[in-house]
Amino acid sequence: MARLFIDSRSAHQKIAAKLRRQITRGDLPAGTQLPSTPELIAEYEVAGTTVQKALQLLKEEHLLVGQPGRGVFVQGATQQSISPVSYMRPADAGQPYRWISEAQKRSQRGSVTLLSVEAVIPPYEVRQALGLEDEDQALLRKQVLSLDDEPTELTHSYYPLELAEGTAMMERRKIKGGTPTLLADLGYPPRSFVDEVSSEIPTEEEVVTLQLPKDMPVMMTFRVVYSDSASPIEASLLTKAAHRYRMRYAIDLP
């Protein structure tokens, strides 16, 4: 017999979840005015303080905004689709990293902040992907990618040391066109990649770096990039705020 399972979240969290889903999926577009507090009280059969707590959660997520004397309005738009394949190719000659050029196509301002560059013993799954032994090191380049000055993605990208040594990848500076362009120039163009996407509870670093609201999960992508002869040239952990973005994959079936 199936075990009876109930949603143990508080009432205001359940209300916020329902409204959030309507906002992120486009059923409540930006500019829409929410029903009044008395109307929400009647709809959900809860106290006024419960409604206010729910609305406050969504205000902290920048999905709602209160306008004194007018009411509460939807501020956030639908979730923005990110197409990973758009960023995998090396940049065209003289062009910036594709994160920046793709943002320009959407009339957004993309930027990259390099946090650190160091040789480290990478996490287990990265070692497995790159074919490293337990004590082997890889080069870590950690960055924050932003759109319109809003932190969007925290990236931990690992590269085999034999590829990185003696190149600009080892230096604590941004690379013109990004690492895909540099690797292609070195004879290691990206040919394919494998993504594993999951939703996870954020670490403190992720909460602070991505400025996440309380109790907001993150969308984690573990990506392995391969060059010719199916050789892995990069393994990355990419962390996004789950309520702001969705991943878009377009795949032709054989």
Rank of each mutant, 00 (worst) to 15 (best):
G48A: 12
L64S: 09
G110Q: 00
P90K: 02
P151C: 05
P122N: 15
S146T: 15
Q67N: 05
Q80A: 10
L145V: 06
L115G: 04
D92Q: 10
E133T: 10
P68S: 14
V74K: 00
V51N: 02
I82V: 12
Y158L: 09
P84D: 08
V85M: 13
A54Q: 10
Q67L: 15
L63I: 06
F73G: 01
E153S: 13
L63R: 03
I82N: 00
A91T: 02
V85Q: 08
L55I: 12
Y87I: 09
D149P: 06
E118K: 14
D149A: 15
V126P: 00
Q143P: 04
Y159R: 02
L163W: 09
A103K: 04
E162R: 07
R127N: 05
L58Y: 01
L145T: 01
Q67K: 14
G48S: 13
L140K: 07
A164N: 11
E150G: 02
L63K: 07
R106D: 08
Q137T: 07
V144T: 08
D148V: 15
L132I: 04
L163T: 14
T152C: 14
Y97H: 11
S116T: 14
S101I: 06
F73T: 08
L163F: 10
R89G: 05
S111R: 06
V51L: 11
Q67Y: 10
S107N: 15
L55Y: 02
L57N: 13
S116G: 08
G131R: 04
L147Y: 05
A47R: 11
L154H: 03
S107P: 03
E135K: 06
Q80Y: 02
T155Y: 00
T50H: 07
K53V: 05
H156A: 15
A91E: 00
T113Y: 02
Y159I: 10
A47P: 01
L161R: 03
D136T: 05
V72K: 05
R70D: 12
V85Y: 08
K53C: 08
Q52T: 14
T113W: 05
L163K: 14
Q75R: 15
T152R: 07
S101F: 01
D149V: 05
K53N: 13
Y124E: 13
